[in-house]
Design a protein around this nucleic acid. Structure first.
Lengths: 251, 251
DNA sequence: CGACCTTTTGAAACGATTCAATACTGGTGG
DNA sequence: CCACCAGTATTGAATCGTTTCAAAAGGTCG
């Protein structure tokens, strides 16, 4: 695991190997703005707080970031998860106010930049804008699919859906090893994603394991033993869901 | 109520009075494409089905439209409500697959158009694109706020939130009469919006009425009697929520 | 080592759903 | 005009899924 060097470095090329299949957004961005520095966050670290008034964009180079919202009493909902190659608009210009918090779920490498920085007529800027718009659109799709399960589904449906979302998205960035994958989230965070208590996440995952649906090991390693059954339980058509919630990799 | 004339009419100006404060998106669109015709839908009518493969945009001239998603067993979630002046992207180009259904909640007047139709270099097209992007952004904000309540809130919080969302958005289009407003949704549809059963919507609304929070009359007329209490119950700061979920009216 | 967080499991409590019966509403056709 | 029907709202009783509380075991880190 080659992570965590000193932060800044003015370069037009990434200072360390980038994960496969994230397109060349990183290169495009650095081409336009060599001054953009790599940033790092450790698990639990807040990347952007609602109090930030100036909207900005986030680009995830490597790692998991949760976009969250909280009720006054502290109850937190994870609205979307960002993975390698994902963009997010942390605060819109036209729609100014309280957006999400962004919290690192594991050790994350990311970039931040402002709208003006990609506003120009350069071809690279146009390509970035287009990719960014697509990224915002799939975020919307994912949030809607999640809302559907949280609003209408049982605990089992919600959890199966969450696992399938992770499965499809990790597959797209080459992080699935024969139905096994790593999810750097605690059961409490899975509960914040699915609208369930940590206790019920635990119970349901154990039931899945007993029934041969999904096996969990090392707290964060998942193995989908019966993909069809999991899809059926989540009410998911895998191909359709992939097309809807997974960002198409550019070029 | 002046609604429902014959449908088409090639004009650069709206064929009938438009509601106040929706900007001039209607005029802009007709200026670019005089061939776009007014469409109408009656309550319950499906405006766009998931099976539609070609993505298109929707512009609501007058009325309520629900964007919905359904589970295989038929359980339906309302993802967002569109009101006068709102745009929606019913199927993205970059993110192709299953988007929402759009269902008319009352008698609706609307326009549909494709991405290519506003792709041009004309100033009007640019203005439309910009407004449309803002509209998509507030839809995302509203969906996130809704997901927060549905995932983490009680029935009372969810319903108060829904009423406040309607309150703020109707206020922006001049349809609030001293805390009284009209919501053309059945209790079942309110349940599809908040992730609750129709029966529980009924019970909770009656409790609100008994406690002097909100009064309901004629099935669809709401009167917020104690705005502060409703905000507090929903965990909402009214000004912050307004800035976040209500589309800024152009010019 | 102790402090802290996470996972696991049981028991009790709670909130929301389901089922069911009644009443109310609006639209249709005889 | 009234009868009828389907959809909607209301209310009670029973049920169910999930949460809360609590206790214990395991992991991680200084």
């Amino acid at each position: 695991m080659l992570r965590h060097t000193g932060s800044a470095r003015p370069a037009t090329r990434p200072p360390m190997p980038r994960p496969d299949k994230t397109g060349d957004m990183y290169g495009l961005l650095h081409g336009l703005h060599p001054e953009i520095v790599d940033r790092h966050a450790k698990p639990g670290e807040i990347i952007a707080h609602e109090a930030d008034l100036t909207g900005f964009f986030l680009y995830v180079v490597d790692g998991w970031i949760a976009l969250t919202k909280s009720l006054e009493d502290g109850e937190t909902q994870i609205i979307d998860i960002l993975l390698n190659g994902d963009f997010a608009l942390i605060a819109a210009k036209g729609a100014p106010a309280l957006p999400y918090n962004a919290e690192a779920l594991n050790t994350v490498r990311y970039l931040t930049f402002s709208e003006e920085m990609i506003n120009g007529p350069e071809p690279g800027a146009a390509e970035l804008r287009s990719h960014l718009a697509a990224s915002v659109a799939v975020t919307q799709s994912r949030t809607a699919e999640l809302l559907l399960r949280v609003g209408q589904g049982t605990a089992e449906q919600r959890i199966c859906y969450a696992l399938l979302e992770f499965y499809l998205r990790l597959e797209a960035i080459g992080q699935i090893d024969s139905n096994r994958f790593h999810v750097p989230m605690t059961q409490k965070q899975l509960g914040q994603f699915t609208g369930l208590s940590n206790v019920h996440i635990c119970r349901t995952l154990r039931r899945f394991a007993r029934n041969g649906l999904v096996r969990t090991s090392d707290r964060t390693d998942f193995d989908i033993l019966d993909l069809d059954a999991v899809c059926h339980m989540a009410g998911v058509d895998l191909e359709a869901l992939r097309a809807e919630i997974v960002l198409k990799q550019p070029a």
